[in-house]
Nucleic acid binder design. Structure first.
Lengths: 211, 211
DNA sequence: CGCATAGTTGACTACGCTCAACCCTGGTGG
DNA sequence: CCACCAGGGTTGAGCGTAGTCAACTATGCG
């Protein structure tokens, strides 16, 4: 999800890679809405976003949509696939994007020879866990008003009190575990109470509620 | 949470460790309800459960209780702390327990020299991510009945259709994001419908609902 | 320009939460 | 050995809030 994982990966940047790995990486361009891989496809690679935005999502048995991660430039995704046979989520490009493709076996070999690479990948995984834990905590807050406020405050720690969403609020609503309607209503209510102000997809947190 | 993470760690077992690490590990005994560390304590070590059961939990700003993990014998916890300055959760012993303590710096050094250890730790982290994703998916199911059934079915994949909970159903309810009352009612309802049968903390899934 | 999708608001409903009362069990101490 | 207590488990009644369905407007993209 947005704003809860912000860990640019450095050691996977092509220019920092040992040559024998660099020569094995590939690039791939994706149009808006294009799918890079589906859940349960054989896992063949891990990725870093070069430009654009990749959404990792899935569906519950009941057909409900769940977003696991929004990967932005310099961020890795599908690192899990290194140790899993199948992908755990669908990867879809939300805007025209370009990703770097690191074939699985190449990286697995590299991990043995380059321990510092292993360390940074572990850090990525840790950040990922951290983000998932925050989401779990967020869901524990039952009242929509409190949940939304807490979410906004969390994001504000990265972005400052003016928050600009670059994707539909509808999506943000689902990330929060609310229907879009409930989310809009909650925002309207918060604005009426003076906790926030907003126009379009920009939301400003007011001091009273930053606490 | 229970049943969603089952990955015994082998390479951290003392007998499999290189001697220079083995000599650095410690053991600690914990009584029921005793706390090993608190959230935001400085992170000094990672752990493996030798015997007993350790609960990793936290509280939301509103004071709601969240369980992140139930660590059982042979399972690691607080692996994240390797790369974080502070612990992310409270660790409490639910029954008399004994844990193995691996000081952080010792392991960090070891990761450089022993790539296969790094690999297994990464696998642990991946399993952890997997478990958290499943919980997030679970929470996406709104109807209590469906949520409980899905949870039971998931556990049944490990344990078979007869499920024995070794901790209060009250706790299980909270893991599921339900109040204990709602959980009891849902179980009663499922039993009336014939989807399950139960006595005490043992629940049997019936074929019709295994699907 | 037109269509698809996002955003917005209203009315109604349903489901789970809260509070409350009660039973049952196991553990502790007098 | 019983009394007591704490905590888990169970069920009922009522309420509130977020979900659902629906109608409509705004926006942006081809």
């Amino acid at each position: 999800m947005d704003g809860l994982l912000r860990e640019p990966i450095k050691s996977l940047r092509p220019e920092n890679l040992p040559p024998e790995i660099r020569s094995e990486i590939r690039y791939q361009n994706l149009a808006t809405g294009e799918t890079l891989f589906h859940r349960d496809d054989p896992a063949t690679a891990i990725y870093v976003v070069e430009s654009g935005r990749i959404r990792l999502d899935s569906y519950t048995p009941e057909g409900r949509f769940v977003t696991f991660q929004i990967a932005r430039p310099m961020e890795s995704f599908a690192v899990m696939s290194l140790f899993e046979r199948l992908y755990e989520a669908n990867a879809t490009s939300e805007v025209p994007s370009r990703v770097i493709v690191y074939p699985k076996q190449v990286l697995l070999d590299a991990l043995i020879k380059h321990p510092e690479l292993a360390q940074e990948l572990m850090q990525q995984l840790v950040k990922h866990i951290y983000a998932l834990k925050m989401r779990l905590e967020l869901r524990e807050i039952r009242a929509a008003r409190d949940r939304v406020l807490y979410y906004l405050k969390t994001i504000a720690q990265f972005s400052g009190i003016v928050i600009n969403f670059d994707r539909p609020l509808k999506m943000v609503a689902l990330d929060l575990g609310l229907t879009p309607e409930a989310f809009y209503r909650t925002l309207a209510q918060l604005e009426r109470k003076g906790s926030i102000s907003r126009s379009h997809r920009q939301i400003t947190l007011h001091e009273t509620s930053v606490a």
